[in-house]
Simulated scan of single mutants.
Amino acid sequence: MNSIDDFVLRLSKKRNTSVIKNPYLDPALANNLRVYLNAIDQLNYKPVLLVGEALGFKGGGLTGIPFSSGQIFERFEHPFLEQIRPDLVIENMESENTATIVWEYLSERRITPLCWNAFPFHPHPKGNRFKNRAPTAKEMKSGARYLRSLQALFQIDTIVGVGNKGAQCAKKAFPDKDILAVRHPSYGGKRDFIQGLDEILFSRR
């Protein structure tokens, strides 16, 4: 795997199951991810890599972009979002809590990380694609391979696990790296998430 196109193609080959939906089977969503990653690649600095849990059915499962939702492109005036929006196909303008908190934070501070997940697909209860579930240990192990490929592609130095699953996956994927961690912003974790990221992003400059 030596290019963004190769990486996206690899993701798009995974089949759906009764408990996993792969949004990248949709060419439009696969291209959304390609647009996103190419724009990250064009930044004039190495971004921080934020590793969350998995795509949600209201968020990345509809946009193809981790830590996003259709609604963030309407709500937030972040230069990065405004840059990529014309090249995206977004048919559903759902709001998703985690994406909203994350991009509210990023918009206020005008920073752009590389967002990814421990499991890069949408895990859901059997037969119900309109709910989320936590990825299993086996799914996170498979997700770590994609995470390593992404890190190699972008040569990221600073990796931050968002929530327990994100931190666990990052530590397993990179046992020799110093993995940082912040609380997941959902379920009352917004304040700690903001404080943790502020300490990582601004105290290290």
Results as ranks from 00 to 15, higher is better:
45 Y>P: 08
14 K>S: 07
35 V>F: 06
167 A>N: 02
53 E>G: 02
76 F>Q: 01
126 K>V: 11
21 K>L: 14
94 E>Y: 15
62 L>W: 03
31 N>V: 04
23 P>H: 04
8 V>D: 08
113 P>T: 05
101 I>N: 04
160 V>Q: 06
24 Y>G: 06
56 G>D: 10
139 E>V: 02
158 T>S: 11
182 V>A: 05
117 N>Q: 08
196 G>Y: 04
162 V>E: 00
119 F>L: 03
49 L>E: 10
146 Y>E: 09
16 N>K: 02
132 N>W: 05
65 I>H: 08
83 Q>I: 05
47 P>T: 02
131 K>P: 03
73 F>I: 00
183 R>S: 12
141 K>F: 11
3 S>Q: 02
42 Q>W: 01
61 G>Y: 00
190 K>T: 14
60 G>F: 02
146 Y>T: 08
43 L>Q: 14
1 M>Y: 12
18 S>W: 10
113 P>E: 01
110 R>V: 12
175 P>T: 01
89 V>T: 15
115 C>W: 01
33 L>R: 02
188 G>V: 00
135 P>Y: 03
124 H>Q: 09
163 G>L: 08
91 E>N: 15
75 R>H: 14
182 V>K: 00
125 P>E: 03
33 L>E: 09
205 R>Q: 13
102 V>W: 02
15 R>H: 11
15 R>Q: 13
58 K>T: 14
118 A>T: 06
47 P>R: 02
20 I>Q: 03
162 V>S: 02
65 I>M: 02
84 I>F: 06
89 V>Y: 12
204 R>N: 14
66 P>D: 05
184 H>K: 09
168 Q>C: 08
132 N>K: 04
89 V>P: 01
188 G>M: 01
167 A>F: 10
60 G>I: 03
178 D>T: 12
148 R>I: 05
183 R>Y: 02
14 K>T: 07
44 N>A: 11
61 G>V: 07
134 A>D: 12
84 I>H: 08
204 R>P: 06
53 E>F: 03
80 F>I: 05
85 R>W: 02
13 K>A: 09
202 F>Y: 11
191 R>N: 13
48 V>G: 00
34 R>W: 00
99 A>R: 09
83 Q>P: 09
130 F>K: 12
75 R>V: 15
28 A>N: 14
133 R>F: 04
38 N>G: 01
163 G>P: 00
168 Q>V: 01
81 L>W: 07
10 R>D: 13
186 S>F: 12
115 C>H: 04
81 L>V: 08
6 D>K: 10
34 R>H: 11
29 L>Q: 00
130 F>L: 12
114 L>N: 02
171 K>D: 01
